[in-house]
Design a protein around this nucleic acid. Structure first.
Lengths: 163, 163
DNA sequence: CGGCACTTTCAGAAATTTGTGAAGATAAGG
DNA sequence: CCTTATCTTCACAAATTTCTGAAAGTGCCG
């Protein structure tokens, strides 16, 4: 080590990580601003930042912060906290919260399942297309149950490894 | 039943399903044209259609079909088949193929993991932010292993239910 | 080889999405 | 109450994405 102190938070280093990780999230389908805001929170020491801090660090307008935060709250990747005795709000990532959010394609999958059931009904369960749809549907139903169990296993594992 | 015959493929009915299901896929982040093409294939009896058939059914230009197909092939949601003795190509959904494609966020997750490892290294494993990143990384590593096992269970289950 | 039946590529028009500044709400503190 | 700090909403400019028609490949078949 060339540094004598424990690691200092080098803003540029943090920023590099934030932008890089955000880019990966964007590639996975998250809109740009929400991705950047989320990455910034993830890389913060406290796990929570104010709108002003986010705006400054990411060089974006309050309006952009507001929009990104609304998006993230909606998909449960972040929660809002009121700072008592101030109108300043604080946005936080709760680890568990966002794990579930990620696996919480559940709502989406539910709607896929419904659409598929419709399809089977309209096309006829005994047609080739109907059968294909049925199998797809069965896949999602299977996955859904199993994912729930998997998350349970993760909670157990996490408990013993991270307390 | 008012119809005497087994179910007839009512084009309008098929189209309704296709558009509806495609809409759900779009909401999950798939681009519009690929979603429509994929849904059309899913709802076809043969499970495979030519470019011309797709263009006609969806009322889109050959160029649009070409673009959508390229996209879907790239993410392994479809395979191309040459019709022997013709330059006509046939695009097919293989059931299993697209299950794996869906869970094949794997490639994406790999890159997330790498970005997170970088982050831990640069921010310091013993900082609060570093620890948060580590835990997130552990989550993905855990998930990854477990998803593989889950897919194996699905294959077994599918075998016995659908042959 | 040359025609034909398809497919892909490309440049640009049209639609959509994003981010901003400015104006409007909300509520704490004097 | 009025001021001030903070967040949200809105209308619009800018960037990006999506589709199309037209032109250019590609390779089967006579």
């Amino acid at each position: 080590m060339t540094e004598s102190k424990a690691v200092e938070r080098d803003p540029e280093s943090v920023s590099r990580f934030v932008e890089h990780f955000a880019a990966q999230l964007v590639e996975a389908g998250l809109p740009r601003m929400p991705a950047r805001v989320f990455a910034a929170l993830l890389a913060s020491d406290s796990g929570a930042l104010t709108s002003a801090e986010l705006g400054e660090q990411l060089r974006i307008s309050p309006a952009a912060v507001s929009g990104a935060v609304r998006y993230l709250a909606q998909v449960h990747m972040l929660s809002r906290e009121r700072e008592p005795g101030s109108r300043r709000e604080r946005y936080r990532v709760h680890s568990d919260q966002w794990y579930t959010a990620l696996t919480n394609r559940e709502a989406i999958i539910k709607r896929w399942e419904n659409a598929l059931r419709d399809g089977v009904a309209h096309l006829g369960a005994e047609t080739p297309a109907g059968r294909r749809l049925s199998e797809t549907l069965a896949f999602f139903e299977f996955i859904e149950k199993d994912v729930a169990e998997m998350m349970e296993r993760w909670r157990v594992y996490r408990e013993e490894r991270f307390g």
